[in-house]
Protein backbone atom coordinates (compact mmCIF):
# COMPACT_ATOMS: atom_id res chain seq x y z
CA UNK A 1 0.00 0.00 0.00
CA UNK A 2 1.44 3.33 -1.04
CA UNK A 3 0.65 6.58 0.75
CA UNK A 4 2.10 8.60 -2.14
CA UNK A 5 2.74 7.56 -5.70
CA UNK A 6 4.12 10.05 -8.22
CA UNK A 7 4.62 8.76 -11.74
CA UNK A 8 6.53 10.71 -14.37
CA UNK A 9 5.49 14.04 -12.93
CA UNK A 10 6.56 17.05 -14.93
CA UNK A 11 6.20 20.75 -14.26
CA UNK A 12 7.96 23.33 -16.39
CA UNK A 13 8.74 26.91 -15.43
CA UNK A 14 10.72 29.43 -17.46
CA UNK A 15 13.94 28.75 -15.55
CA UNK A 16 13.27 25.48 -13.82
CA UNK A 17 11.64 22.15 -14.55
CA UNK A 18 10.68 19.09 -12.58
CA UNK A 19 11.54 16.22 -14.88
CA UNK A 20 9.83 12.86 -14.70
CA UNK A 21 9.61 12.72 -10.95
CA UNK A 22 8.89 9.22 -9.68
CA UNK A 23 8.42 8.86 -5.97
CA UNK A 24 6.76 6.14 -3.90
CA UNK A 25 6.10 6.43 -0.19
CA UNK A 26 5.04 3.15 1.41
CA UNK A 27 2.40 3.34 4.11
CA UNK A 28 3.82 3.22 7.62
CA UNK A 29 7.18 4.66 6.63
CA UNK A 30 9.10 7.91 6.83
CA UNK A 31 10.70 9.37 3.73
CA UNK A 32 13.39 12.01 3.95
CA UNK A 33 13.49 14.31 0.94
CA UNK A 34 16.86 15.95 0.42
CA UNK A 35 18.53 18.11 -2.18
CA UNK A 36 20.21 21.49 -2.56
CA UNK A 37 18.28 24.76 -2.50
CA UNK A 38 16.29 25.21 -5.68
CA UNK A 39 16.43 21.52 -6.54
CA UNK A 40 12.63 21.25 -6.63
CA UNK A 41 11.76 19.92 -3.17
CA UNK A 42 9.09 22.51 -2.38
CA UNK A 43 7.61 22.34 -5.86
CA UNK A 44 7.37 18.57 -5.62
CA UNK A 45 5.68 18.78 -2.21
CA UNK A 46 3.24 21.37 -3.56
CA UNK A 47 2.40 19.13 -6.49
CA UNK A 48 1.78 16.30 -4.01
CA UNK A 49 -0.54 18.60 -2.04
CA UNK A 50 -2.40 19.62 -5.20
CA UNK A 51 -1.40 23.27 -4.73
CA UNK A 52 0.59 23.27 -7.95
CA UNK A 53 -0.86 21.33 -10.84
CA UNK A 54 1.59 19.15 -12.74
CA UNK A 55 1.88 19.56 -16.53
CA UNK A 56 2.10 15.81 -17.01
CA UNK A 57 2.21 12.61 -15.00
CA UNK A 58 0.01 11.25 -12.25
CA UNK A 59 0.02 11.88 -8.50
CA UNK A 60 -1.85 9.58 -6.13
CA UNK A 61 -2.05 10.52 -2.47
CA UNK A 62 -3.79 8.15 -0.05
CA UNK A 63 -5.48 6.65 -3.08
CA UNK A 64 -6.76 10.01 -4.32
CA UNK A 65 -5.75 11.46 -7.63
CA UNK A 66 -4.18 14.91 -7.33
CA UNK A 67 -4.95 17.71 -7.89
CA UNK A 68 -8.53 16.74 -8.85
CA UNK A 69 -9.37 14.97 -5.59
CA UNK A 70 -7.31 17.19 -3.31
CA UNK A 71 -10.22 17.91 -1.01
CA UNK A 72 -10.79 14.25 -0.22
CA UNK A 73 -7.06 13.68 0.22
CA UNK A 74 -6.41 16.69 2.42
CA UNK A 75 -8.83 15.52 5.11
CA UNK A 76 -6.07 13.09 6.00
CA UNK A 77 -2.93 15.14 5.37
CA UNK A 78 -1.13 17.43 7.76
CA UNK A 79 0.93 19.85 5.69
CA UNK A 80 3.39 22.38 7.04
CA UNK A 81 5.73 24.31 4.79
CA UNK A 82 8.54 26.63 5.67
CA UNK A 83 6.70 29.58 4.11
CA UNK A 84 3.49 28.93 6.05
CA UNK A 85 2.42 31.42 8.72
CA UNK A 86 -0.52 31.39 11.04
CA UNK A 87 -2.55 34.60 11.47
CA UNK A 88 -0.18 36.92 13.30
CA UNK A 89 -2.87 39.04 14.95
CA UNK A 90 -4.70 36.01 16.32
CA UNK A 91 -3.87 33.75 19.23
CA UNK A 92 -2.77 30.16 18.84
CA UNK A 93 -6.01 29.22 20.61
CA UNK A 94 -8.01 30.92 17.82
CA UNK A 95 -6.35 28.62 15.30
CA UNK A 96 -6.92 25.52 17.39
CA UNK A 97 -10.63 26.29 17.76
CA UNK A 98 -10.90 27.03 14.05
CA UNK A 99 -9.36 23.67 13.17
CA UNK A 100 -11.42 21.84 15.74
CA UNK A 101 -14.55 23.08 13.94
CA UNK A 102 -13.26 21.71 10.66
CA UNK A 103 -11.64 18.38 11.45
CA UNK A 104 -13.85 15.70 13.00
CA UNK A 105 -10.71 13.75 13.92
CA UNK A 106 -9.17 16.76 15.71
CA UNK A 107 -7.67 15.42 18.94
CA UNK A 108 -8.18 18.04 21.62
CA UNK A 109 -6.45 16.22 24.50
CA UNK A 110 -3.50 15.51 22.20
CA UNK A 111 -3.41 19.19 21.17
CA UNK A 112 -3.34 20.13 24.85
CA UNK A 113 -0.56 17.64 25.46
CA UNK A 114 1.45 19.06 22.55
CA UNK A 115 0.98 22.60 23.85
CA UNK A 116 2.61 21.44 27.06
CA UNK A 117 5.32 19.41 25.39
CA UNK A 118 6.18 22.19 22.92
CA UNK A 119 5.93 24.77 25.70
CA UNK A 120 3.40 26.97 23.88
CA UNK A 121 0.80 29.31 25.35
CA UNK A 122 -2.55 29.25 23.53
CA UNK A 123 -3.42 32.73 24.83
CA UNK A 124 -0.51 34.32 23.04
CA UNK A 125 -0.81 36.05 19.68
CA UNK A 126 1.37 34.63 16.94
CA UNK A 127 3.18 37.91 16.33
CA UNK A 128 4.65 37.73 19.84
CA UNK A 129 6.21 34.31 19.27
CA UNK A 130 9.80 33.54 18.36
CA UNK A 131 10.58 31.77 15.08
CA UNK A 132 10.98 28.46 16.86
CA UNK A 133 7.68 28.82 18.69
CA UNK A 134 5.89 29.68 15.45
CA UNK A 135 7.29 26.60 13.73
CA UNK A 136 6.26 24.43 16.66
CA UNK A 137 2.78 26.03 16.62
CA UNK A 138 2.34 25.32 12.90
CA UNK A 139 3.49 21.72 13.38
CA UNK A 140 1.11 21.33 16.31
CA UNK A 141 -1.81 22.30 14.07
CA UNK A 142 -0.80 19.47 11.71
CA UNK A 143 -0.09 16.81 14.34
CA UNK A 144 -3.38 17.31 16.20
CA UNK A 145 -5.41 16.64 13.05
CA UNK A 146 -4.24 13.04 13.51
CA UNK A 147 -3.80 12.65 9.75
CA UNK A 148 -2.68 9.47 8.04
CA UNK A 149 -0.04 11.41 6.14
CA UNK A 150 2.21 14.22 7.30
CA UNK A 151 3.95 16.32 4.66
CA UNK A 152 6.52 18.68 6.14
CA UNK A 153 8.62 21.06 4.08
CA UNK A 154 11.71 21.73 6.19
CA UNK A 155 10.06 21.33 9.60
CA UNK A 156 13.22 21.77 11.64
CA UNK A 157 14.85 24.69 9.80
CA UNK A 158 15.85 27.43 12.21
CA UNK A 159 15.03 25.44 15.33
CA UNK A 160 17.42 25.12 18.25
CA UNK A 161 18.63 21.58 19.05
CA UNK A 162 16.13 21.13 21.87
CA UNK A 163 13.16 22.18 19.74
CA UNK A 164 14.44 20.06 16.88
CA UNK A 165 14.56 17.03 19.13
CA UNK A 166 10.99 17.71 20.29
CA UNK A 167 9.80 17.79 16.68
CA UNK A 168 11.73 14.70 15.62
CA UNK A 169 10.53 12.82 18.71
CA UNK A 170 6.93 13.72 17.88
CA UNK A 171 7.37 12.51 14.31
CA UNK A 172 8.65 9.17 15.59
CA UNK A 173 5.77 8.94 18.03
CA UNK A 174 3.45 9.19 15.03
CA UNK A 175 5.22 6.20 13.50
CA UNK A 176 4.14 3.89 16.32
CA UNK A 177 0.94 3.62 14.29
CA UNK A 178 1.84 1.61 11.22
CA UNK A 179 -0.95 3.06 9.11
CA UNK A 180 0.56 6.54 9.25
CA UNK A 181 3.29 7.92 7.01
CA UNK A 182 5.56 10.94 6.83
CA UNK A 183 7.24 12.72 3.93
CA UNK A 184 9.56 15.51 4.97
CA UNK A 185 12.19 17.61 3.30
CA UNK A 186 15.14 18.83 5.28
CA UNK A 187 18.60 20.26 5.06
CA UNK A 188 19.36 18.66 8.36
CA UNK A 189 20.92 15.46 7.14
CA UNK A 190 21.31 14.16 10.69
CA UNK A 191 17.54 14.23 11.21
CA UNK A 192 16.93 12.63 7.84
CA UNK A 193 19.50 9.93 8.46
CA UNK A 194 18.11 9.20 11.90
CA UNK A 195 14.40 8.79 11.27
CA UNK A 196 13.92 8.04 7.56
CA UNK A 197 13.07 4.61 6.26
CA UNK A 198 13.72 5.77 2.74
CA UNK A 199 15.60 8.65 1.20
CA UNK A 200 14.79 10.53 -1.96
CA UNK A 201 17.46 12.71 -3.38
CA UNK A 202 16.58 15.44 -5.86
CA UNK A 203 18.95 17.64 -7.81
CA UNK A 204 18.12 20.18 -10.52
CA UNK A 205 14.54 18.98 -10.81
CA UNK A 206 15.48 15.34 -11.21
CA UNK A 207 15.22 12.50 -8.72
CA UNK A 208 18.73 11.08 -8.61
CA UNK A 209 18.03 8.39 -6.03
CA UNK A 210 15.02 7.09 -4.19
CA UNK A 211 15.49 3.97 -2.12
CA UNK A 212 15.48 2.57 1.38
CA UNK A 213 17.90 4.31 3.69
CA UNK A 214 19.94 1.29 4.69
CA UNK A 215 20.75 0.32 1.09
CA UNK A 216 21.28 3.96 0.16
CA UNK A 217 23.85 4.53 2.91
CA UNK A 218 25.34 1.08 2.40
CA UNK A 219 26.03 1.71 -1.26
CA UNK A 220 28.49 4.50 -0.52
CA UNK A 221 32.03 4.01 0.81
CA UNK A 222 35.23 5.90 1.22
CA UNK A 223 38.09 3.57 0.34
CA UNK A 224 41.61 4.37 1.48
CA UNK A 225 44.44 2.83 -0.49
CA UNK A 226 48.21 2.68 -0.36
CA UNK A 227 49.59 2.51 -3.89
CA UNK A 228 52.97 2.46 -5.54
CA UNK A 229 54.19 4.93 -8.14
CA UNK A 230 53.17 2.83 -11.11
CA UNK A 231 49.57 2.31 -9.98
CA UNK A 232 46.83 3.39 -12.32
CA UNK A 233 43.24 3.40 -11.19
CA UNK A 234 41.01 0.95 -13.09
CA UNK A 235 38.22 2.70 -14.94
CA UNK A 236 35.04 2.41 -12.92
CA UNK A 237 31.72 4.23 -13.07
CA UNK A 238 31.04 4.01 -9.38
CA UNK A 239 34.08 6.09 -8.39
CA UNK A 240 32.61 9.51 -7.73
CA UNK A 241 35.71 11.23 -6.45
CA UNK A 242 39.43 10.51 -6.42
CA UNK A 243 42.01 12.20 -4.21
CA UNK A 244 45.69 11.32 -4.16
CA UNK A 245 48.52 12.48 -1.94
CA UNK A 246 51.87 10.72 -2.43
CA UNK A 247 51.34 7.02 -1.90
CA UNK A 248 47.90 7.42 -0.39
CA UNK A 249 44.73 7.49 -2.33
CA UNK A 250 41.15 8.11 -1.21
CA UNK A 251 38.23 7.05 -3.39
CA UNK A 252 34.58 7.95 -2.86
CA UNK A 253 32.49 5.14 -4.27
CA UNK A 254 28.77 5.21 -4.97
CA UNK A 255 28.07 1.57 -5.71
CA UNK A 256 30.31 -0.32 -3.37
CA UNK A 257 30.47 -4.08 -3.01
CA UNK A 258 33.01 -6.58 -1.72
CA UNK A 259 34.24 -7.23 -5.23
CA UNK A 260 35.36 -3.64 -5.54
CA UNK A 261 38.13 -3.98 -2.94
CA UNK A 262 39.29 -7.22 -4.51
CA UNK A 263 39.37 -5.51 -7.87
CA UNK A 264 41.66 -2.79 -6.51
CA UNK A 265 43.89 -5.33 -4.78
CA UNK A 266 44.29 -7.14 -8.09
CA UNK A 267 45.26 -3.87 -9.69
CA UNK A 268 48.11 -3.64 -7.21
CA UNK A 269 46.75 -1.38 -4.47
CA UNK A 270 46.44 -2.34 -0.83
CA UNK A 271 43.17 -1.35 0.74
CA UNK A 272 43.82 0.06 4.23
CA UNK A 273 40.35 1.16 5.13
CA UNK A 274 36.79 1.05 3.89
CA UNK A 275 34.64 3.64 5.64
CA UNK A 276 30.93 4.37 5.56
CA UNK A 277 29.74 7.85 4.69
CA UNK A 278 27.24 10.01 6.49
CA UNK A 279 24.25 11.22 4.53
CA UNK A 280 25.78 14.69 4.58
CA UNK A 281 28.98 13.43 2.96
CA UNK A 282 26.99 11.53 0.34
CA UNK A 283 24.85 14.59 -0.31
CA UNK A 284 27.86 16.83 -0.88
CA UNK A 285 29.78 14.25 -2.91
CA UNK A 286 26.92 13.60 -5.30
CA UNK A 287 26.04 17.26 -5.81
CA UNK A 288 29.70 18.07 -6.46
CA UNK A 289 29.95 15.15 -8.82
CA UNK A 290 26.88 16.18 -10.79
CA UNK A 291 28.14 19.75 -10.96
CA UNK A 292 31.41 18.44 -12.30
CA UNK A 293 29.35 16.72 -14.97
CA UNK A 294 30.45 13.34 -13.81
CA UNK A 295 28.46 10.23 -13.58
CA UNK A 296 26.90 10.52 -10.15
CA UNK A 297 24.55 8.13 -8.48
CA UNK A 298 23.82 4.75 -9.97
CA UNK A 299 21.14 3.66 -7.56
CA UNK A 300 17.66 3.95 -8.96
CA UNK A 301 14.49 3.24 -7.05
CA UNK A 302 15.06 -0.19 -5.57
Amino acid sequence: MLAIKCSNVRKTYPHFALQDVNLNLAEGTVMGFVGPNGAGKSTTLRVIMGLVHQDAGSVQVLGHSMPAAQRAAKWDIGFVSEDMRLYSHRTLGFHLEFLEQIFPKWDKPYAAELLRRFDLNPEQKLKGLSHGQRVKAALLTAFARKPRLLVFDEPTTGLDPVARKLVVDEMMRVMEDESRSILFSSHNTLDVEQISDSITFINQGEIVASQDKESFLDAWRRVRLVVDDTFTLPNCNSIVKTQRAGHQMVLTVSDYNEGFAAHLTQAGASVTDVERLTLEEIFIASVEASQAGQHAIQGEAA
Binding site: G28, M172, E214
Partner: peptide, 17 residues
Protein backbone atom coordinates in the same frame (compact mmCIF):
# COMPACT_ATOMS: atom_id res chain seq x y z
CA UNK B 1 10.31 -3.14 15.88
CA UNK B 2 7.99 -0.13 15.89
CA UNK B 3 8.11 0.21 19.66
CA UNK B 4 11.89 0.19 19.73
CA UNK B 5 12.05 2.60 16.76
CA UNK B 6 9.74 5.06 18.54
CA UNK B 7 11.68 4.62 21.77
CA UNK B 8 15.08 5.22 20.18
CA UNK B 9 13.75 7.82 17.69
CA UNK B 10 15.33 5.97 14.81
CA UNK B 11 13.72 4.72 11.65
CA UNK B 12 11.78 1.47 11.59
CA UNK B 13 13.96 0.13 8.81
CA UNK B 14 17.09 0.54 10.93
CA UNK B 15 15.64 -1.47 13.83
CA UNK B 16 14.31 -4.02 11.36
CA UNK B 17 17.80 -4.48 9.96
Amino acid sequence: IRELAADLKVSVITVKR
